[in-house]
Design a protein around this nucleic acid. Structure first.
Lengths: 233, 233
DNA sequence: AAGATTAATATGTAGCTACATATTTATGTC
DNA sequence: GACATAAATATGTAGCTACATATTAATCTT
């Protein structure tokens, strides 16, 4: 892009990647030292280092001090997913977003919820069930638990007007996150609120957040039939 | 870790993140220039730059030349998932891995497959249906299409002994990847091979790869009931 | 030969400089 | 005032140096 004379670290990365792809450097092989590669390319070691860091993050090579850089023989597929606020997700698809509070109660945490947070004794938390709609049709049904010790302010929020999802994202940053995906059959509440036939397959996103070691919230978000989640390229 | 006198870029990142979390820098705010932050912390601008790059990648701030660094007001949840070779996945759980070829044929691509690859005319591809087992129980049922133009060598592979999944990972690196997750109901083949009750909810991973713009393979991997995918922290 | 110690070495990190690049802001022209 | 042009400015990138750190290889004890 600039002078042909100057290489950028992305150029180096791409060339090394190409060599791995075409087996110049085969799986398991040890790559030349950064310094030698730098000399070959006529660039600084820092540039090669940056390129290598990137390849390492991508999961294509493994680097060890003194041990050198090796091409991984069992590469994993690594994909990144963005899970936006539901409102945003709906609006970005060009649909009208609506939200509806279904229930709000203070309950003792059952074992499944305690397990998600990794706590050993049951405590009272705020439980919120709500429905997100896209173009007046059910989109996501969420069943959420919020720890009142870390997030007492949630009690003052009017959850008929604003989703807990949105309030939390804007007001309660987290330091640790656990995300899981799975599938479940529509039954009972989920079928009813999502207007899905009993037994149809639903996509489930489970998200739990902490601030430090203190639980904030855990939510099971059940998507209406047909929901698909795509990786950010 | 080192002298207390020297800050690492991760320290800077953590402190900036903390300030964002505690609203010292509120959503939408513009952060001080890298140079000013560097001065405040008593470190070099490069160090701040590295920290900022990281926060930018995480999706916490947005950087623009001349425009400065802004705290994003609508943070997305960003999670990374590792999808290993199925053999490895099974073995890592401490289970015995087995594999079984169900069918191997050369067929004309239907519209759904053409759509996945983004091609407009039907061509003949190798179609492979196979079952992965963990401890002698069905684990993943896969329905795969392989483009013989980019990967003719697959015709010589004995797919009764080695899964196409494994052969491809080890022999056919890709340059572009698309991953999607969804849910589907067990029916017909998927129910039969996974020994799942008709209508039970199954987790589906759809993966398509290209080398350059040439299609390599697309696979619909259907997991047995109970499958869960967790983010890499 | 086994185990402990020391040296060698490849990557990791931080600081500095210099310049590139994208945007915004200011200025000039009609 | 509208539009084009020029200056200012914050981030992006590359190169250099110096030193830290982890880990392997070599060496020395016993």
């Amino acid at each position: 892009m600039t002078d042909q004379t100057r290489l950028s670290w992305t150029d180096v990365r791409d060339e090394i990647r190409a060599r791995i792809l075409n087996r110049t450097y085969a799986p398991g092989d040890r790559l030349p030292r950064d310094e030698d590669i730098a000399q070959e390319f006529g660039c600084a070691r820092t540039t090669v280092h940056r390129a290598m860091q990137d390849l390492s993050q991508t999961g294509l090579v493994e680097r060890k001090r003194r041990g050198g850089t090796h091409v991984l023989s069992d590469p994993v597929t690594r994909a990144t997913f963005d899970i936006p606020i539901t409102r945003r997700e709906v609006e970005q698809r060009g649909s009208k977003y609506d939200y509806q509070l279904i229930r709000r109660s203070v309950e003792l945490t059952p074992l499944t919820i305690m397990a998600r947070f990794g706590i050993t004794s049951a405590i009272k938390m705020l439980r919120v069930k709500a429905l997100h709609l896209a173009d007046n049709r059910p989109y996501i049904f969420e069943d959420r638990w919020i720890d009142l010790r870390s997030t007492p302010a949630i009690m003052e929020v009017d959850l008929t007007r604003q989703s807990a999802n949105e309030w939390l994202v804007h007001n309660k940053p987290y330091s640790r996150l656990d995300v899981r995906f799975s599938a479940m059959s529509a039954e009972g509440e989920s079928a009813r609120f999502l207007e899905a036939p009993e037994g149809s397959a639903l996509f489930v996103i489970e998200r739990t957040t902490w601030i430090g070691t203190a639980p904030i919230t855990t939510v099971q978000a059940i998507a209406a039939p047909g929901y698909q989640l795509a990786a950010q390229s």
